[in-house]
Each structure stands twice: as structure tokens, then as C-alpha cells.
């Protein structure tokens, strides 16, 4: 019987391990370049004074001499950026995140903890309703809110924005609460808390991760919404960042050659800052919330 050479097999193993490592790094580097390139593209063009037609590969090579704050100046020197666009987008985003999250919290808790007759068919029913494409609710909403004279009003947008996240976030919260042992609330009840007290003192602190994710999702939706805003907002005073960005980016009309591309990029970056702030505040919770929400089920 021929014994395998110890050194030979070790060298072979080592070699295949190195090859697989190199391949892994190569794949990850390609993926990372792919993931980061568009972001770099926005960032770099935002500090260049450049039109779309003038962007070439060579203009994307970092060059300190080309850097200018012209675009940011241009966007920020227009007071309506703050007084209309940013203000309105923040109003819609924050109020929807606030209202929607509180509602989702109650919903998720009720769905997770309370048994009521017909609970399972009820959840099936909700899942079926969720299949109705949200975008298409815009049409009936449009007529409903027209009837109520809520078109082109803050309330008329805040209501559907808040409602938009309640079912999805509610189920997210429910799944998360399902993973918290019921003993904890019962201990609080015996310890002298009311049901509400057990909810606020035990459950809420424990579901922070999912609330972080919920805040982010519930904010980004309305903050960057184009569909409802496009359909509901007719006057100048309610215009949002998303509507403005869309008009800044509209290339199709002029063929795009003359579009002031740096301004678009700078606008995009400025629009992203509030999201970045929320992301940073809740960062700790978002990743764990994301993975938990997805793996469950």
C-alpha cells in the first residue's frame, strides 16, 4: 500500500487554500468597486463644475485642482432649498416616521401578544391585502382626498405616508416581539406593573433594534417619495426635495447635454444628509434589525 506523501498533500492543500483566498478577494474587490462606483460618481461630480456631456473617464480621476464648491453654493444660496423643499420633505418624513412607528408598535404588540378569535385568518387577510400594490393606492386616494379637500395639504400627504408603513413595520415589530419571552412581561405584571407599564418598561426597551430599522424605513419612504407627491402636490408651497431633484435631473427634454450635472449631484448629496444622520443615530440597531427581520420565518 502506498502512503500519501505528507508533505505533498500539505503543500497541495496550502496551495488550493491560497488560490481560493485570492479568488475570494478578487470577487469581493470587483463587487466592492461595482457597489461604490455610482456613489463615488455622485460625490466626485458634486465637487466639479461640469455638465453631463463633459463627463469623461479622465474627469473622474481625482484631481485637487478641479475641486469647487460652486454646486453646493448654487444649491444652498437659493433660500427655497430650505424654506420649501427641505422643510416640506422633513415635515413629511419625520411626521410619517413618528406617527407610523407608534402605530406599528401598537399593532405589532397586539398581533404578537393578544389572542383574539380569528387571529390567524385575520393575519392571512392582512397578508392578502398587502399584495395590493401600494403604488396603485394612489388612484383611489386621489379621489378620496379630493372629496375631503385634502389634495395639496400637509395632512393629505401625512395621512397616507403614515399609514403606508404601519402594516409592513407592524409585522416587522410583531416578528421581533415574538422572539421576546412572555415571562418578562408576566414578571413585570406580578412585580406591580400594569399591562401598559409592562409594555413601556419591558417591551419597548427590548425592541429598540427593530424600531431603529423602522424609523429609517418609515422616514426614507415619505422623504424620497415621488409618486404620491407628484399626484397630490399641485402648488409651489408643498414642493419636496424629491420633486425638485426629479426636475433637476430631467435630461430627456434637452437630450441632457447641457444639464448642470454637478448641481444634480450636489443636490443629491445634500438630500441624503438627513438620512445619513438618522442612519448614524440608529446605526447600532439597524444592522441587527435588518438581519433579524429577514431571517425570521
Amino acid at each position: 500500500m502506498k502512503l500519501p506523501s505528507f508533505f505533498g498533500s500539505r503543500r497541495k492543500r496550502l496551495k488550493s487554500r491560497i488560490v481560493s483566498r485570492i479568488l475570494s478577494h478578487f470577487a469581493l474587490i470587483v463587487a466592492t468597486l461595482f457597489a461604490l462606483f455610482p456613489i463615488y460618481f455622485i460625490f466626485w461630480t458634486s465637487i466639479l463644475k461640469i455638465q453631463l456631456a463633459a463627463i469623461s473617464l479622465s474627469s473622474l480621476i481625482p484631481n485637487l485642482a478641479l475641486i469647487t464648491l460652486y454646486n453646493y453654493n448654487y444649491v444652498l444660496s437659493d433660500p427655497t432649498f430650505f424654506t420649501i423643499y427641505l422643510k416640506n420633505s422633513l415635515i413629511f418624513g419625520l411626521s410619517a416616521a413618528g406617527v407610523g412607528l407608534v402605530l406599528a408598535l401598537f399593532t405589532g404588540y397586539a398581533l404578537s401578544r393578544f389572542t383574539f378569535p380569528g387571529r390567524k385568518p385575520f393575519i392571512y387577510f392582512i397578508i392578502a391585502l398587502m399584495q395590493f400594490p401600494g403604488t396603485m393606492l394612489v388612484i383611489p386616494y386621489f379621489f378620496m382626498f379630493k372629496e375631503l379637500n385634502l389634495i395639496n395639504t400637509y395632512l393629505g400627504l401625512i395621512i397616507p405616508y403614515s399609514a403606508g408603513s404601519i402594516v409592513f413595520t407592524g409585522i416587522l415589530v410583531k416578528n421581533y416581539i415574538d422572539s421576546i419571552p412572555e415571562d418578562l412581561e408576566e414578571a413585570a405584571l406580578v412585580d406591580g406593573e400594569t399591562k401598559t407599564g409592562a409594555f413601556t418598561k419591558v417591551i419597548i426597551p427590548l425592541i429598540k433594534p427593530i424600531l431603529g430599522l423602522g424609523v429609517l424605513l418609515a422616514f426614507i419612504g415619505p422623504y424620497t417619495d415621488f409618486i404620491l407627491a407628484r399626484a397630490f402636490i399641485t402648488g409651489n408651497s408643498l414642493q419636496t426635495l424629491a420633486l425638485r431633484l426629479y426636475s433637476v435631473s430631467s435630461i430627456s427634454s434637452s437630450g441632457g447635454a447641457a444639464i448642470d450635472y454637478g448641481v444634480f449631484s450636489a443636490f443629491s448629496f445634500l438630500m441624503g444628509i438627513p438620512i445619513l444622520i438618522i442612519y448614524l443615530i440608529f446605526q447600532k440597531y439597524i444592522i441587527s434589525g435588518l438581519t433579524l427581520g429577514g431571517v425570521k420565518g
Binding site: P181, D183, L184, E186, A187, A188, L189, V190, D191, G192, E193, T194, V202, L206
Partner: peptide, 18 residues
């Protein structure tokens, strides 16, 4: 209600608030 019965309970899982 449980909170007004003046009882204390030790749970099998201990139910410590994490």
C-alpha cells in the same frame, strides 16, 4: 390583577429583564 395581589413570583426562566 396580578400587581394588586401582593405576591412575588420566581419564574423557571428567571425572566430577568435583559
Amino acid at each position: 390583577e396580578p400587581k394588586d395581589r401582593n405576591v412575588a413570583m420566581v419564574f423557571q426562566s428567571y425572566a430577568l429583564y435583559p
